[in-house]
Design a protein around this nucleic acid. Structure first.
Length: 488
DNA sequence: ACTCCTATAGGTAGGCTGTA
DNA sequence: TACAGCCTACCTATAGGAGT
């Protein structure tokens, strides 16, 4: 096979050679990225657009024609010594496009890799190292290598200022002395792996999620039983050891291994098939609830590029809340909700509407309540007239996650997770499975799509689904507490 | 992607006990 | 009585898990 290795495939190969083999030999076995992953990629492209604004005279290589045309145009632009976006070069079996090549003194070029993350990661070194190896091999003289990424301390005031939004990190030394020097060897090994008749035998391990979630994870991990040792709560070391000893099932862990009290509860539940109930702890938790009880949940979105004044990269902006109010223990809850519309900053209306609903006394119950309090405090920074009210909510807040992360209650169906998405079905039988919008990530992505993009034909339907989803979260919390009362 | 929180693990310091 | 060694408790750093 005449193999051409792109930068992305090089990084795939570093993560796992089995993945690399599949990419070349059985590409149909690799699932397409889901909508949430795609939204992250789109975000990256947008950041790239702002990075280009820092080089107003830059020229972008046109890749809409043939592969060779892109290479030819790149060569032409290199000879003209202008700033180039998406410059495409090949060397030996390697191919890459440079986000930005900037001509500098003495016929040199600076290489700039743009990322939408907020700091430097190991994988970025390999990424730039591959490019450095390739471009110098192709005859370019590279002076400095930079990673350009998001400065999350930037606060938007007026139009986006790309020079403040983005920061440049000099990685020249690491690239030249280390990461570019290992490319030749790595590529040779990768080519060997790709050309092999069968995929390389590689055990499952931490690399399946590092640095990226592998698309083949379902395939490689399918040999494990449904409830396996990897579900042990907060225990990632022991499962690998157990697997190597041939222990796959939670209820077959040999006694010689000491496990935490919570893990022990899990294992015991797996053996009996019954939930664990610490009625004393549950009672103590329930006794902290004061009525009227306000069950509260927010949905937020966070973009790399801050969309509004007084917001920062990746800072959560709330656009929706759902509140179920239970006046007296056991009475039917009353539902209040808000879903922002339009492209303006939703925070002022969100805060005003929420304050109206929340009353002045009684518990405020949220799942992972620190998230809701964080959002409220961030809003109060921008809208200081709400700070006192936010403080009063802080005094009323109760975290419904607590009895579950404490293992006051554990059901084997939770699969070692205390998330609402696991607790609710295990405890009440209610499920998110058949919902078109069934998790916060999708809710956030769909809201942004129909609100901020042209792709909004189904806006009415999406808004209805969002209302359903957020309402299910709070109603689910009501059901969970009702259920807990029965264990008291 | 990020961020916050917290459980856990590991390390250090201080105190106690036992032995010389 | 003094010293050494061990154990415990506390603190800190990190990794995992929750949310979107």
């Amino acid at each position: 096979m005449n193999i051409r290795l792109s930068k992305t495939k090089y990084l795939n190969g570093l993560q796992c050679k089995k993945l690399l083999w599949y990419i070349y030999n059985e590409p149909d076995a690799i699932p397409e990225p889901d909508a949430t992953t795609q939204a992250i990629f789109d975000q990256g492209h947008l950041v790239g657009e702002y990075a280009k604004k820092l080089f107003p005279n830059g020229v972008e290589v046109d890749h809409s024609e043939t592969f060779e045309a892109g290479l030819r145009q790149t060569r032409d632009l290199i000879s003209k010594r202008v700033s180039i976006f998406e410059a495409a070069l090949t060397y030996k079996r390697c191919y890459a496009r440079a986000d930005i090549l900037e001509p500098v003194a003495d016929d040199n070029w600076d290489l700039i890799e743009v990322k939408s993350s907020t700091d430097l990661k190991d994988v970025n070194y390999h990424d730039i190292g591959f490019q450095y190896y390739l471009y110098t091999g192709a005859g370019l003289k590279i002076d400095k290598c930079y990673l350009m990424c998001i400065d999350n301390s930037y606060v938007r005031k007026g139009d986006i200022e790309p020079c403040k939004l983005l920061k440049k990190i000099d990685v020249t030394d690491e690239i030249k002395t280390s990461y570019s020097t290992m490319v030749e060897n790595n590529v040779a090994e990768m080519v060997k792996a790709i050309n092999s008749k069968t995929f390389p035998q590689i055990d499952i391990g931490a690399h399946c999620n590092e640095p990226y979630d592998c698309p083949l994870i379902d395939k490689c991990w399918s040999f494990l039983p449904e409830r396996n040792v990897f579900f042990l709560y907060r225990n990632n070391k022991l499962p690998m050891t157990l697997i190597q000893e041939g222990v796959f099932e939670l209820d077959k862990i040999p006694e010689k291994y000491e496990i935490s009290a919570k893990n022990q509860i899990q294992v015991d539940c797996e053996k009996t098939g019954k939930p664990y109930i610490d009625s004393q702890k549950i009672k103590e938790f329930l006794d902290t609830i004061q009525y009227p009880a306000y069950y509260m949940d927010f949905e937020t979105f966070a973009s790399a590029i801050p969309m509004f004044d007084n917001s920062s990269p990746y800072k959560q902006i709330p656009f929706q809340f759902s509140v179920h109010v239970v006046k007296e223990k056991g009475t039917k809850p009353e539902h209040f909700s808000f879903l922002a519309d339009g492209t303006d900053d939703p925070r002022p209306e969100f805060m005003a509407k929420l304050k109206n609903v929340m009353g002045t006394k009684g518990s405020v119950i949220a799942f992972k309540a620190s998230f809701e309090m964080y959002i409220l405090n961030k809003c109060a920074e921008v809208l200081p007239e709400y700070q006192q009210w936010v403080d009063s909510i802080d005094e009323r807040i109760i975290d419904l996650l607590q009895p579950f992360s404490d293992f006051a209650y554990y059901h084997p169906q939770q699969d070692g997770s205390c998330s609402l998405k696991k607790v609710l079905p295990a405890l009440t039988g209610k499920s998110y499975d058949d919902m078109e919008i069934g998790d916060g990530g999708t809710a956030s992505a769909e809201y942004c799509r129909v609100t901020f993009t042209e792709d909004n034909k189904d806006k009415k339907k999406v808004r209805k689904l969002l209302e359903e989803y957020c309402g299910l979260d709070t109603m689910g919390m009501v059901d969970i507490v009702e259920q807990l009362y029965s264990f008291k």
